[in-house]
């Protein structure tokens, strides 16, 4: 997305006022870039640095005492990979369910000849204003036998009103009605029309929704905290919380402490491993996002038009 090209001033004499605006805009931009990037660069640098120097606060920007020891240990840390696998599966299946439920519903709501679309929209939208709350939801999930089942990670949040509205708006504005009429005249059923005509034309919005949902699943931790209690089904974020915030790290991976020095070394390693873990956990999303940025932004804009 590009903001409106500011009116070109090149031929005009730049007034003092003009230069002040320029200065402020670029200064703010520089500040934002600095404040945003510095922590990220710092974490990456620290993850490649000698643990002792990290703990002593010697790292300012670039790695010092380059080492891959932290990453080697993370590679052997099975809990992280178990979490990775679970999160990957939840993201894959969760996103598929999101799309499979949201897109047909949004298409139905986008059709003017769908009797009851206003009532149905209201039925969906009401859930944005009022909810049963955590405890009743938990009890209902328990009745449905979804508590402590990996399925809840896939189905919880399968449809969001917001995403449905975004998709509906897209269908309304971008799929020509004449095309749909023509398909009907050629003897297409609604399902065929949806699968063969509408969906191929809706690729941009499918990409947007898939990305929103996938990032949501990847970063989600609340549902797992509430509904899961079996460590085999934990997603990555739960393990991250245990390691990074609650400071629970398996003692077994550290080996036997036979001297104070060794113990100190292990303590340092444990602290500095956190940096590597942060990197390993965030890289998949952060590395993908710049390439997919235009889709994210498009999605936000389609949604913003009819919020």
């Amino acid at each position: 997305m590009r903001p409106a090209a500011p009116v070109k001033h090149k031929r005009l004499i730049r007034s003092k006022d003009d230069r002040i605006v320029d200065f402020i805009a670029y200064a703010v931009g520089a500040l934002v870039v600095l404040v945003t990037l510095y922590p990220l660069v710092f974490v990456v640098s620290a993850s490649f640095s000698d643990p002792a120097r990290v703990i002593n606060g010697e790292i300012t920007l670039l790695p010092k005492g380059f080492t891959l020891e932290g990453y080697k240990r993370i590679l052997n840390y099975s809990l992280i990979w178990k979490g990775y696998r679970n999160t990957f599966l939840y993201t894959l299946f969760g996103t598929s369910v999101n799309l499979a439920v949201t897109l047909p519903a949004a298409y139905a709501l986008s059709r003017r000849d769908f009797i009851g679309r206003n009532a149905l929209t209201a039925f969906f939208a009401f859930t944005m204003f009022f909810s049963g709350g955590l405890i009743p939801t938990y009890l209902v999930m328990k009745t449905l036998r979804l508590v402590n089942s990996p399925l809840i990670m896939v189905f919880m949040g399968a449809v969001s009103v917001w995403n449905t509205v975004i998709a509906r708006t897209f269908f309304q504005g971008n799929i020509p009605l004449e095309l749909q009429e023509a398909a009907y005249l050629d003897g297409c059923s609604t399902t065929q029309l949806f699968l063969r005509v509408v969906l191929p034309l809706a690729k941009p919005i499918i990409a947007v929704l898939a990305l929103f949902c996938a990032v949501g699943h990847w970063n989600s931790y609340f549902n797992a905290l509430i509904y899961l209690s079996n460590a085999n089904t934990y997603p990555l974020q739960i393990f991250l919380r245990n390691i990074l915030i609650l400071n629970q790290m398996d003692a077994m991976m550290m080996g036997d402490p036979d001297s104070m020095e060794f113990l100190l070394r292990m303590m340092q390693l444990k602290e500095s491993m956190k940096f590597g873990i942060v990197v390993v956990a965030s890289v998949p999303v952060l590395a993908l996002y710049p390439f997919l940025q235009k889709y994210f932004v498009k999605g936000m804009m389609v949604g913003a038009l009819k919020g």
Partner: peptide, 15 residues
Amino acid sequence: VSYAPYFISTVVLVS
């Protein structure tokens, strides 16, 4: 650059 932190999970942000 300024959009990037949005994609970091809450757990990672707090750590």
